[in-house]
């Protein structure tokens, strides 16, 4: 992507998300900032409980943020917003969920599931127009339009995820938040759904926020990547740059855990465990430091220097 073509569509500014209150308070997101540019695939990777899903949900206003702000095309979309903004938001930012078995209404026909979003925003004028839109969305995700009269339980996992994609697509969104869209699927189906997502991106110029815990998929599909650990982004940069030159020990641990289909390498491979006590942040809090062009890491300057040397040594 050339520099001048880069248009920020989403800006996340120092957001915090807190669940519960008093003694049961839990701060899930502790000051996260990043930008998403038009047409790119931005990845959020981390383990369960790291807060990656919470960030996705905060963007579409399912989880309210306690401080910070989120801007969409420069306009604030967090906190109190007017109805008009809310409508554009619903239309333009859509989400694909992880488990296609749990995210579809079992009692509705596919026709209704796919067009539910349209009903909510009154996105059609005639019944005929709605049908046409459903038909197109079904074809776009590679399902025969006749399947619209069926119920979700008649479909396999891969097909159900396609229905999940069709119902976001029908809204004609700009940004799609894909929360672990393929983790619940079989390996062979994963490839089909990944290919579909990439194809749709090309066809409609979609922007993706891709949330996953599996770095091998991230390397394949994302342009830029943020590694999140316990509610904080610890490293952010161009995906290839992060894979070639991972600095933060947590990123390195994640990369070392990617299995390779190579038995001899695998047998000797030592998985590196991340131990947060390697940081001595007693006196000094880590800062957001630049490690290269478009490559940032959460560290103290001393750490950054030490990690850089380690990386050189391999």
């Amino acid at each position: 992507m050339s520099a001048e073509a880069k248009q920020k569509i989403l800006e996340v500014r120092d957001i915090h998300v807190v669940f519960g209150k008093g003694r049961r308070k839990f701060e899930a997101i502790k000051g996260v900032s990043f930008d998403i540019y038009k047409g790119e695939t931005f990845g959020l990777v981390g383990e369960s409980g790291s807060g990656k899903t919470t960030i996705g949900r905060a963007i579409i206003r399912i989880n309210p943020i306690t401080s910070g702000e989120i801007l969409y095309h420069g306009k604030r979309i967090s906190g109190r917003i007017d109805r008009e903004t809310n409508r554009t938001l619903i239309r333009n930012i859509q989400m694909i969920f992880q488990d296609p078995m749990a995210s579809l209404n079992e009692r509705a026909k596919v026709d209704y599931i796919v067009s539910e979003g349209l009903y909510n925003i009154k996105g059609f004028s005639t019944e005929e127009e709605r049908r046409q839109k459903v038909r197109k969305a079904m074809l776009d995700v590679g399902l025969p339009p006749e399947f619209a009269t069926r119920f979700p339980h008649e479909f396999s996992g891969g097909q159900r995820q396609r229905i999940g994609i069709a119902r976001t697509l029908i809204m004609n969104p700009e940004l799609v938040i894909a929360d672990e869209p393929i983790s619940a699927l079989d390996v062979s189906i994963r490839a089909q759904v990944l290919n579909l997502l990439m194809e749709l991106q090309k066809q409609y110029g979609l922007t993706y926020l891709f949330i996953a815990h599996d770095l091998s998929i991230m390397r394949f599909i994302t342009n830029r990547l943020a590694v999140i650990y316990k509610g904080k982004i610890v490293e952010l940069g161009e995906t290839e740059e992060i894979f070639k030159n991972p600095l933060h020990p947590y990123t390195r641990a994640l990369i070392s855990a990617i299995p390779q289909p190579d038995p001899l390498t695998e047998r000797d491979r030592k998985v590196y465990r991340y131990d947060p006590s390697v940081h001595s942040y007693g006196q000094r809090a880590p800062e957001w430091l630049r490690a290269g062009e478009n490559h940032f890491v959460l560290a103290t300057p001393e750490e950054l220097e030490a990690w850089g040397k380690e990386a050189l040594r391999g």
Binding site: R190, N195, M198, D214, I217, R219, F220
Partner: peptide
């Protein structure tokens, strides 16, 4: 079909 073997920008092999 393993994403580890994919080439970025090209479709992954799918069955």
């Amino acid at each position: 079909s393993l994403p580890q073997l994919g080439v970025k920008g090209e479709p992954l092999y799918a069955i």
